[in-house]
Design a protein around this nucleic acid. Structure first.
Length: 445
RNA sequence: CGGAGUGUAGCGCAGUCUGGUAGCGCACCUGCUUCGGGAGCAGGGGGUCGGAGGUUCGAAUCCUCUCACUCCGACCA
């Protein structure tokens, strides 16, 4: 992508309303524009990252055997009257009346609707287990939206729902979700720690929240520092293998890690003192097992092998997709701007032409762009007629993890410069070598 | 929902107390110079001052009402 043909409205100064670093950088990097309290337009750069994150979530869900579908944002109130939540949910639910005076709502979550789909089409235990999910916009009319996309009213969320015959099956679904979430966050360059949590209005007994440690987090968390050295890595998982999933879950849930809601001081102090850590955390996901809470009142039942009809065991599992952008930036930035992990970066690499209009520099940049595109990597080529400093500042702000700098001086010696955004370290090499290096880096992402 | 603030050009702000033709920096446009870490000079364009009503010869400025947004706290993916 040529920057002169792109739409990247970067700001030099900090917008007054943005208090935390992720919000500031998202506004300054031209990723989002606020339209109302807690409601944002996603500008091209932000949209690219959002789609990347969504993509990773989709891939990891489907690896775990979960099936995508798409439910609407608007839902009929009657479904929610069945579960009893229409009255329970309170002011956070945005209620709408259509022209026929029917009560509607903008979905804050989808347990009722997915249960309705299930009960309409599933009759037998033979159709189980089943896990359906979607990535869709939600609306929760927060009293006080803040921190940009971290606490918006409208937000993009992956929510998945498992339907199982027995408690044991449902617990395997729970474990499967935990494993898939661990992989998902790690691919995004995040360390999200599963912590025992309280269940809240969704209900249920078994629940973990995934928290990213960051000083701007809204939750206070307590953990054993041993958990932060756990890595999922590139291990291959058979998601149908119950013992394997359970073992991984055990690995991640044995070290103490809890939010303030479930914190147990006595247990916490059993950890060696030097490993007792307190921090703030950003909640980026949550998994629940809630049994028959919805299936029973809403009649989501299946016929068992012995001919009885029983309500299915369910759980729900959410990842805050739009919030993740904020969380990633909170966890990965410096005083110059964002530092995207390779997994979610909007562009894999930036090309900076130090002397736009110089025949050799222009030709070299174009050749590098073409070579990268041929490898399926789309660079952002800063072809503006700007000074070097301005181009560097823009690249640093928008946080592309790699930068290829091309100038007449280096070209005279057949060299360009490859710079890591994270370390700031540069290395001179031929254009071909730089392209090869970028391809190598992204081969494993 | 309790408390505190803010709305003036795309962004950051001054001007409001003490009413008198709406300003500054950045950004934008034109020209010249400059060119490896947000350049310099010269010229230029852009705002019915959140909205409505009122007071006044005259309102960004005073009064009333209203809308929006932000921050702190309590609540939440």
């Amino acid at each position: 992508m040529r920057l002169t043909r792109y739409f990247l409205p970067v700001l030099k100064e900090n917008p007054a309303e943005a208090q935390i670093v992720s919000h500031r950088y998202m506004l300054r990097a031209g990723m989002i524009k606020q339209q109302a309290a807690g409601i944002y337009s996603w500008l091209p750069l932000g949209y690219r990252v959002l789609r990347r994150i969504e993509q990773i979530v989709h891939e990891e869900q489907q690896k775990a055997g979960h099936i995508p579908l798409l439910m609407p944002t608007l839902q009929p109130a009657d479904l929610w009257r069945e579960s009893g939540r229409y009255d329970d949910y309170g002011e956070e639910m945005l209620r709408i009346t259509d022209r026929h005076k029917r009560d509607m709502l903008y979905g804050p979550t989808n347990e009722e609707m997915i249960t309705d789909i299930f009960r309409a089409h599933v009759e037998s235990y033979k159709q189980l287990p089943l896990t359906l999910y979607h990535i869709q916009w939600k609306f929760r009319d927060e009293v006080r939206p803040r921190f940009g996309v971290m606490r918006g009213r409208e937000f993009l969320m992956k929510d998945g729902y498992n339907f199982d015959l027995t408690y044991e099956d449902a617990i395997h679904a729970y474990n499967r979700h935990m494993v898939s979430y661990l992989r998902t966050y790690e691919r995004m360059g995040l360390q999200a720690i599963p912590m025992r949590a309280a269940s809240g209005p969704i209900g249920g007994d078994n629940t973990h929240e995934f928290l990213v440690l960051a000083s701007t987090g809204e939750s206070e968390v307590f953990y054993d520092s041993a958990i932060t050295s756990l890595k999922f890595g590139d291990r291959v998982v058979d998601f149908d293998d119950r013992a394997e999933c359970a073992k991984i879950v055990e690995e991640w849930t044995t070290p103490y890690a809890r939010t303030d809601e479930t914190h147990d001081v006595a247990l916490f102090h059993e950890i060696p003192a030097e490993r007792q850590k307190t921090s703030r955390g950003i909640e980026v996901g949550q998994i629940f097992y809630f049994g028959t809470k919805y299936s029973e009142p809403m009649g989501a039942t299946v016929v068992t092998p012995d001919g009885n009809r029983v309500p299915v065991h369910m759980g729900s599992h959410g990842i805050g997709v739009s919030r993740l952008l904020g969380a990633i930036i909170e966890a990965s930035h410096d005083d110059k701007g964002i530092i995207w992990p390779e997994g979610v970066t909007p562009f894999p690499v930036g090309i900076v032409n130090l002397k736009q209009g110089d025949g050799a520099a222009d030709a070299a940049c174009e050749a590098i762009e073409k070579a990268l595109l041929a490898k399926g990597l789309e660079p952002l080529y800063d072809d503006r007629d700007e000074r070097a400093g301005a181009k560097f500042a823009t690249m640093d702000l928008i946080g592309l993890p790699w930068r290829i700098t091309v100038g007449p001086r280096g070209l005279a010696a057949g060299k360009v410069e490859l710079t890591s955004r994270r370390t700031g370290e540069s290395e001179e090499m031929s254009p071909e070598a730089a392209v090869a290096r970028i391809a190598e880096i992204y081969a494993g992402v």
